[in-house]
């Protein structure tokens, strides 16, 4: 009896930690998505593609150079540039037409998914982690837990705090917040708003790219992941509130926990809980938990 209880608690602890790591990953992806939406009202349906692109680039670079950190840096830069290019080449032409922009990014995501499939094929990749973190560390109750996954939680915290500091304590953040509140006034004050847009798009896309490398190291990379992370970003920001970074954190935590506990304890209905959370939030607060009323 006692042994049974023991095992259950251990499973519970491991599932909880798994949920936290998944929440971290969801947060990093969704915060970029939310940032872009918050300023530009663009629902970037190609966000999952950016995630996947980041993962593939991280894989290639870290394989070629043997350095995981270089892989992350390369993914952040290349995917950030891809996001900026998307904004400059397509989305800036239809600024303000949010539905048309969403449709255009859907088109981009279809083409991108297909080209990535052509380039990297259908098989799954795993990005090699640096030796220092590919070990297991003792954790109370759970026993041993992968260092890399714990690192992911730390990574999400750093990114979350970094984003918060950037938005609330820097001049760029001030411009972004001003743009969210009153874009025209900001423009009238002489700020180059289109440039701010491109910059924010690059940051948001870069976050997706970084998340791709981390996800590809801790989990794996394969075609179809783009849809998965687009979906998770959508639900996270619907639950947390569009455009809110703390909202993305709460949303990611709720969604990832529901998904992980659901899969662990009722495997064939795992997705239902995520969905139930979304519906419940929509019924009570259509703008999301921390979202501002439109």
């Amino acid at each position: 009896m006692e042994a049974l209880l023991d095992i259950n608690w251990r499973l519970f602890a491991i599932v909880t930690l798994n949920g936290l790591t998944l929440a971290s990953l969801y947060f990093i992806v969704a915060s970029g998505f939310s940032l872009i939406f918050g300023l530009m009202r663009v629902v970037n349906m190609a966000h999952g593609s950016l995630y996947l692109l980041g993962a593939y680039i991280g894989f290639e670079v870290s394989e070629a150079t043997g350095s995981w950190l270089l892989g992350i840096a390369a993914a952040a830069v290349v995917v950030g540039a891809a996001g900026a290019a998307l904004q400059v080449s397509i989305l800036s032409w239809m600024q303000g037409q949010d539905l048309r922009q969403a449709l255009a990014t859907i088109g981009v995501s279809i083409v991108a998914a297909d080209l990535m499939l052509a380039q990297w094929g259908g098989s799954a990749y795993q990005i090699t982690l640096p030796g220092a973190v590919s070990s297991f560390v003792p954790v109370p109750v759970a026993g041993r837990y992968a260092m890399a996954r714990l690192m992911l939680i730390g990574f999400a915290l750093v990114i979350g705090i970094g984003l918060w500091l950037m938005l609330n304590r820097t001049r760029v953040g001030m411009l972004i917040r001003a743009g969210v509140d009153d874009r025209r006034m900001l423009e009238a004050l002489g700020v180059n708003v289109p440039l701010v847009f491109v910059g924010v798009f690059a940051i948001g896309a870069g976050l997706a790219g970084v998340a791709g490398v981390i996800g590809g190291s801790v989990l794996s990379v394969s075609p179809g992941e783009d849809a998965r992370y687009l979906l998770s970003s959508l639900i996270v920001v619907i639950v947390g509130g569009m455009g809110s970074i703390p909202g993305a954190a709460i949303g990611a935590l709720l969604v990832a926990m529901a998904e992980t506990y659901g899969l662990a304890y009722t495997p064939t209905y795992g997705i239902v809980y995520t969905f139930a959370i979304m519906v419940a939030v929509l019924a009570v607060r259509p703008q999301g938990l921390l979202g501002r009323a439109a």
């Binding site: 629902v43 539905l99 209905y269 997705i271 979304m278």
Partner: peptide
């Protein structure tokens, strides 16, 4: 508008994962 698009997409994907998981 765009929120309808997002929420119906989330519903659609949730249904997809349900069909995949559920025997």
């Amino acid at each position: 508008g765009i929120y309808t698009l997002m929420i119906t997409l989330a519903v659609a994907m949730a249904f997809y994962y349900l069909t995949l998981q559920n025997y």
